[in-house]
């Protein structure tokens, strides 16, 4: 009789096992969403790799054209549609260049060929100048070239991503 008992699970053991098991599931059910919420920001992809359609490739000329496009921007507390501007053209090698108009000195907006600045980008704030490739001209305040947008071409359409710093000349 005692041998028989050894192979059997007692009522107490059975209850212990089942309650631990069920309790574990219940606990997990409560904790899992909390953990999920806590690490949620890490799981979300950041939106900075999105590309926006700006213009058709066959419209691009060797003369810089100013184009405006909108991206969704998460700015701490606000979800906003942010306006971006780019100067788009082909350089002397025929490569597409999409430059950000933000002066690398202190962030003013530069303009192409204003006043008597032929073939240059010009910053009205502290008279910074950049050549046609957006490279800062030594002796003027900016310390680096204008940032260039990452771009992608699909079906003859130009899409722009984020603007990155470039190496100085």
């Amino acid at each position: 009789m005692s041998e028989k008992k050894n192979n059997q699970v007692s009522r107490r053991q059975f209850l212990n096992y089942t309650l631990t098991g069920v309790g574990g599931f219940m606990g997990a059910a409560v904790v899992a969403p909390m953990v999920g919420m806590a690490v949620d920001p890490l799981l979300k992809a950041d939106g900075s790799d999105e590309y926006e359609y700006v213009m058709d490739v066959d419209e691009i000329t060797t003369e810089p054209q100013r184009k405006t496009f909108y991206i969704d921007q998460q700015d701490g507390w606000y979800d906003t549609e942010a306006e971006r501007t780019a100067w788009i053209y082909r350089d002397e090698n025929g490569d597409i260049l999409a430059l950000s108009p933000i002066c690398t000195h202190l962030g003013c907006v530069v303009d192409w060929e204003t006043g008597d600045h032929d073939n240059e980008f010009y910053c009205p704030c502290h008279y910074g100048r950049y050549d046609k490739n957006g490279v800062n001209i030594p002796g003027t305040p900016p310390e680096g070239p204008l940032h260039a947008y990452e771009y992608r071409i699909e079906d003859g359409r130009l899409y722009l991503g984020r603007a990155n710093p470039r190496e100085g000349a």
Partner: peptide, 8 residues
């Protein structure tokens, strides 16, 4: 402010 950020 956006246009002239670096001086204003």
């Amino acid at each position: 402010e956006k246009q002239l950020k670096g001086r204003v």
